Simulated assay, not measured.
Amino acid sequence: MSKNKTAKKLKVLLFLNENSQFSKYHYLKLLVQDDIELVGIITNHNQELRSKRTKFFSMLNFFRRLIDRMYFEYKILPLRLKKSFINTDGIRIMRPNKLNTELASEIYSMEPDLIISAGYYRKIPNSILRIPKVGSFNFHPSLLPAYAGGNPWFWVIAKGEKYTGVTIHLMTSVYDSGDIVLQNKIRIENGITEQRLIYLTTIASINLVPSFIKKCKDGKLEMKPQVLSKRSYFGIVTDIDKKIQWSCNAESIKNLIQACSSGSGAWTKVSNERLWIDKVKIGNNISQDINSGMIINIGRKGIEVTTRDKILLIKKGIINNSRIGHLDIIKKLKLREGDIFN
């Protein structure tokens, strides 16, 4: 790793995912940095660009996203204004099908001082990671070594964490395990959605860029090894991850539903019908041994369902892409006391 100060701009090669907001705003931040030259971008192969997915729509989700988006756009407005004055014609954009030796040779010819990855979805081989003079670094949206892996935003909410953050770390052959350079800690607000947490971690991460670049230029990178015995790793969220396990405690189930609130909610089944649950309230302790997931009361305030420790009151849910209250859920699914969610 170079320790010499240099007056010239650092040549930076950026790995990003065009399907990721986290990625795209790191590009914007790097683009307006005066002390670097963004020489190239490696991004999705054309076949991997995601078409717009059909998502559950409701007015509530619409206004949630609108408010979060307005807040985020306000925060990054200076970047957008500055970008409009920058010529991007000289930035080389590559969409490789494979990260192979041929690509490594192309990257070597670009003579990058620094490789930065932000939200990139592929494992970058050592033959590429070793090329830059300063090093190859990843911007990860959690406080490593906790929540390594894909989509930590969902997992920190689902696990009921009170804090999360972002980490800049050296890239190695093992995902999200390299030495830590910088971190930025943020508090997870009560009732936060995954989308809002993505915005908050993106802002926290791009705010680290100037100090990180300065450390690289000055040869003053200080890195500390991760305590891998404290490492936790979670993969990309699947449909089964969103399934409610009624044998868990009520708080855990509520956290899962909150983690899913930017989409269609967490789901359960009753009589082979799938119900997406969007809003719940934790009730009283369970005073006797009752099967988890059992409906014990259907009333005007909600559907009371047993968990491992407390009653969970279902207030709203989603059936056939329609968000409805508990009374309509009862009618559509013909629910009765004693029915079991599974």
Rank of each mutant, 00 (worst) to 15 (best):
Lys9Tyr: 01
Phe15Ile: 08
Glu18Gln: 14
Asn19Thr: 10
Gln21Phe: 04
Tyr27Arg: 02
Leu30Trp: 03
Leu31Ser: 11
Ile41Phe: 03
Ile41Lys: 02
Ile41Thr: 01
Ile42Asn: 02
Thr43Asp: 10
Glu48His: 12
Ser51His: 10
Lys52Asn: 12
Phe56Ile: 04
Asn61Tyr: 04
Phe63Glu: 11
Leu66His: 13
Asp68Ile: 01
Tyr71Glu: 10
Phe72Asn: 09
Phe72Lys: 12
Glu73Ser: 06
Tyr74Pro: 00
Ile76Tyr: 05
Ile76Arg: 09
Phe85Met: 08
Phe85Cys: 03
Thr88Ile: 15
Gly90Ala: 04
Pro96Cys: 08
Leu99Tyr: 14
Ser109Leu: 14
Met110Ala: 10
Ile116Tyr: 03
Ser117Gly: 06
Ser117Tyr: 05
Tyr120Lys: 12
Lys123Cys: 10
Ile128Ala: 07
Lys133His: 06
Phe137Ser: 02
Tyr147Cys: 13
Ala148Gln: 06
Gly150Lys: 00
Phe154Gln: 04
Val156Ala: 09
Val156Trp: 06
Gly165Asn: 06
Ile168Lys: 05
Ile168Val: 15
Thr172Asn: 12
Ser173Asn: 09
Val174Cys: 07
Val174Lys: 15
Val181Asp: 08
Leu182Asn: 05
Leu182Glu: 13
Asn190Phe: 00
Thr193Arg: 07
Glu194Tyr: 09
Gln195His: 14
Gln195Arg: 09
Arg196Pro: 00
Ile203Glu: 12
Ala204Trp: 08
Ile206Cys: 12
Val209His: 11
Ile213Thr: 14
Lys220Trp: 09
Glu222Pro: 01
Glu222Cys: 11
Lys230Ser: 14
Tyr233Thr: 13
Gly235Arg: 14
Gly235Ile: 03
Ile236Gly: 10
Val237Glu: 13
Ile240Glu: 15
Lys243Tyr: 13
Gln245Lys: 10
Ser252Glu: 13
Ile257Ala: 00
Gly263Leu: 06
Gly265Met: 00
Ala266Val: 00
Trp267Ile: 02
Asn272Tyr: 10
Trp276Val: 01
Trp276Asn: 11
Ile277Phe: 03
Asp278Arg: 09
Ile290Arg: 00
Gly293Leu: 08
Met294Trp: 01
Gly299Ser: 13
Thr306Trp: 07
Thr307Gly: 02
Ile311Trp: 06
Leu312Gln: 05
Leu313Arg: 10
Ile314Pro: 03
Lys316Thr: 05
Gly317Asn: 08
Ile318Asp: 07
Asn321Gln: 14
Ser322Phe: 09
Ile330Thr: 12
Lys334Cys: 11
Leu335Glu: 06
Leu335Phe: 06
Arg336Ser: 10
Glu337Lys: 11
